[in-house]
Design a protein around this nucleic acid. Sequence first.
DNA 1: TATATACGATACTGTGGAGTTCCGGATCTT
DNA 2: AAGATCCGGAACTCCACAGTATCGTATATA
Lengths: 233, 233
Amino acid sequence: MVSVATTQLDPAEETEPVKLGRRRDHTRDPDILAAAVDVLAECGYEGMTIDMVAARAKAGKATLYRRWPSKGELVIDAVACMKNGDLNLSQLPDTGTLRGDLIAMIKPHSIEDGEKKLRVIAGLMSLLAHSPELAETARVSVVEPRVTAHRFLLRRAVERGEISSRCDIDNLSTVTTAMASMRILFERKTIDREFLISLIDGVILPAVGLGAGPAAGADPESRAAGDTAVTAR
Amino acid sequence: MVSVATTQLDPAEETEPVKLGRRRDHTRDPDILAAAVDVLAECGYEGMTIDMVAARAKAGKATLYRRWPSKGELVIDAVACMKNGDLNLSQLPDTGTLRGDLIAMIKPHSIEDGEKKLRVIAGLMSLLAHSPELAETARVSVVEPRVTAHRFLLRRAVERGEISSRCDIDNLSTVTTAMASMRILFERKTIDREFLISLIDGVILPAVGLGAGPAAGADPESRAAGDTAVTAR
DNA sequence: TATATACGATACTGTGGAGTTCCGGATCTT
DNA sequence: AAGATCCGGAACTCCACAGTATCGTATATA
């Protein structure tokens, strides 16, 4: 993480207080980091070169090195800036039923966003083992928000009395993200609405005792009523 | 994949039928591949050098290049040779109950083996996106055997009448592997017996309608009876 | 306007690793 | 025994990329 102090007028600071001449244009930092994320998603950490990032950001290579001391630091900042996805605040859906909430979380943009982030993580997976800092940054940016969202919905279902408090909320709130990661990273398939609904109806809901019959899960069309009503967009 | 034809006496073959002099010692191939797997698990694909592998296998660098045309081909063979784990044949446990079977699958050696394989996969994750061949080899070597084993146990439970045929066997047989992968790759924790049992009792069994009460899963100690009896070793 | 700095572009340096070549010694076939 | 081939080891070439330096230009402060 690089300290992005801009104009820094603190008088009690180092011996170089005031800067003359042209100022560094920090409004371009997000573009550079976004370019880095793009290249990371396509090429991985080792395949990514500083020239690629500079070219995609329409910036000079030297400019990047003026702002980040090394490729590694740039990548850490790039991964950290992925955190701001779509489900940041708890303005999560509240449909009154757990199934309605889970279905309402399925949004094309969120899927696309998640797939890209997973591709980025895949590209620097080999670094995670040797860089705990990067590993934690990646976890916080990619998996933690999704797991937290699911945990929130499950806890609300408990408070609502819809499901038992004895449910294994910690594990269940991780299932969807884990299964989606597996599908993208290992099976090289994409995530679609049908797959996510099969997880909800075949794993999550049966596991909390909300299966259609006892231990059901097949025939998801039979309950499409509460589905399409909620999932506009 | 390199063709490991050794003595090749087929008379209808190319114009160079018989080899004179010292023969290539193919009994050392497994050692070299095992060394490659070790280095891969520790350093990842980009961090692995041919010299590392040669040194660990106590072989010469030139020897490796006599047998594999490139680093990439060596890695593909190394990943493929990981397939022979412990649960290869269907000599899986048969305890009479699904829970007993799942618990009996928890063996320290299997866990250790799985963790190492996942570390290998993590190290070449960035290649999987651009090399479908390697991706498929990795999937077949690491995830497919475990998912297949779970699917086998679940189907047997269906045939036994223990669980409903409407269970989502495809998804449920993937859950444990997906959750374990997530835990190792993202959370950097290790897999232990307690975690796997929490998956069985908190996710799998409730999802197939075998929860203690409806939608239970906590308090795994309350059913330790069928547990320790089965899991010797 | 004068000065100082940031900018994009390009050329340059240094390094690490893939792949090759050569060597003396060992091992096989005939 | 003799020739052919393999072995481990080490030196070598080649190249891609991280990081630096330079230059002409653009834009800020004073």
